[in-house]
């Protein structure tokens, strides 16, 4: 029996009160409840406060470049279809620097869970606006306030055809954990946008700000794309949480012929046995 504590390692360098602690705890619980041994799990991330997660969760880890967690994850997926793959990164990482990968990854639909720690700000670099920052938010680099409207990651994912789209809040621990489990076990790309406060740099979207607005969607049909889109578009005074959409579609793994058998990693290989590939040139 694995316990949540078995997945905790390192000493997080996050600020006291940071929402990332709750996300880490929920992840450790989700992994324990799914009985996934650490050596069978890979946590892949980019750069940012959120992206430090591979250092604090006992599992394999690929802490790559800012914005590039998803491409790296696709490669890991291709190399070894047996591993459970989780991408953990911030809103800036996932939607800004890595925006192009976000879009194309949805098209590919590899089997992985993507947990975006959305604090609506660039935390690590000390408070610049992120693609999800609210209009008007004043920062050191947005001195007149953010001028462009925020990116809506969930609506974008739905429109791109993502099969699993959910929103959580770090303050709703049980819901977060359960949603993580559902995302990890979902066959295909599963996006969970996790709202959480940045106590140091986001003075607009505080814990209270979220707490006052979020509510759990009930009576929601997660197989209905239209109502999923409606939920995804709801933002402001009331912000819905829940699995908005859950309808599997063919995955990257199921479509790529080379991935139908055993994982590619570790397969024996002898170059001499390939000599016949030259025949087509004769």
């Amino acid at each position: 029996m694995l316990r949540p504590e078995d997945y905790l390692t390192g000493e997080p360098a996050w600020c006291p009160g940071c929402g990332n602690f709750a996300i880490r705890k929920a992840l450790s619980q989700a992994l324990a409840e799914l009985s996934l041994p650490p050596h069978r799990v890979v946590v892949c991330s980019g750069i940012g406060q959120a992206a430090k997660m591979p250092h604090y969760i006992q599992s394999n880890g690929f802490n790559g470049l800012h914005g590039r967690a998803l491409p790296a994850a696709l490669g890991i997926r291709a190399a070894n279809t047996d591993l459970t793959l989780i991408v953990e990164s911030g809103d800036g990482d996932s939607y800004g620097e890595g925006g192009n990968h976000f879009i194309h990854n949805i098209r590919r639909n590899p089997n992985l869970a993507h947990f975006v720690h959305n604090n609506q700000v660039y935390g690590l670099t000390k408070g610049q606006a992120s693609p999800t920052s609210q209009m008007g938010m004043v920062t050191g680099t947005q001195t007149e306030g953010v001028l462009a409207p925020p990116l809506n990651p969930l609506a974008l994912a739905l429109v791109m055809g993502a099969g699993f789209v959910a929103r959580c809040f770090s303050g709703e621990a049980e819901h977060l954990k359960e949603t993580m489990k559902a995302a990890i076990t979902f066959p295909g790309y599963a996006l969970v946008d996790i709202l959480h406060p940045c106590v140091s740099f986001n003075k607009v979207n505080t814990f209270k700000w979220y707490r006052d607005r979020v509510f759990l969607l009930d009576d929601h049909d997660a197989s209905n794309w239209q109502s999923a889109l409606e939920a995804a578009r709801q933002w402001g005074e009331r912000i819905p949480l829940g699995i908005f959409y859950r309808v599997p579609r063919p995955t990257f793994e199921s479509a790529v012929p080379a991935l139908q058998g055993k994982p590619l990693a570790g397969q024996p290989f002898n170059p001499a046995s390939l000599s016949r590939v030259q025949e087509e040139f004769l």
Binding site: V42, R68, A72, L74, G75, I76, A79
Partner: peptide, 9 residues
Amino acid sequence: NMALGASYG
């Protein structure tokens, strides 16, 4: 980055 992920994998 994909190639690096695959190599790591």
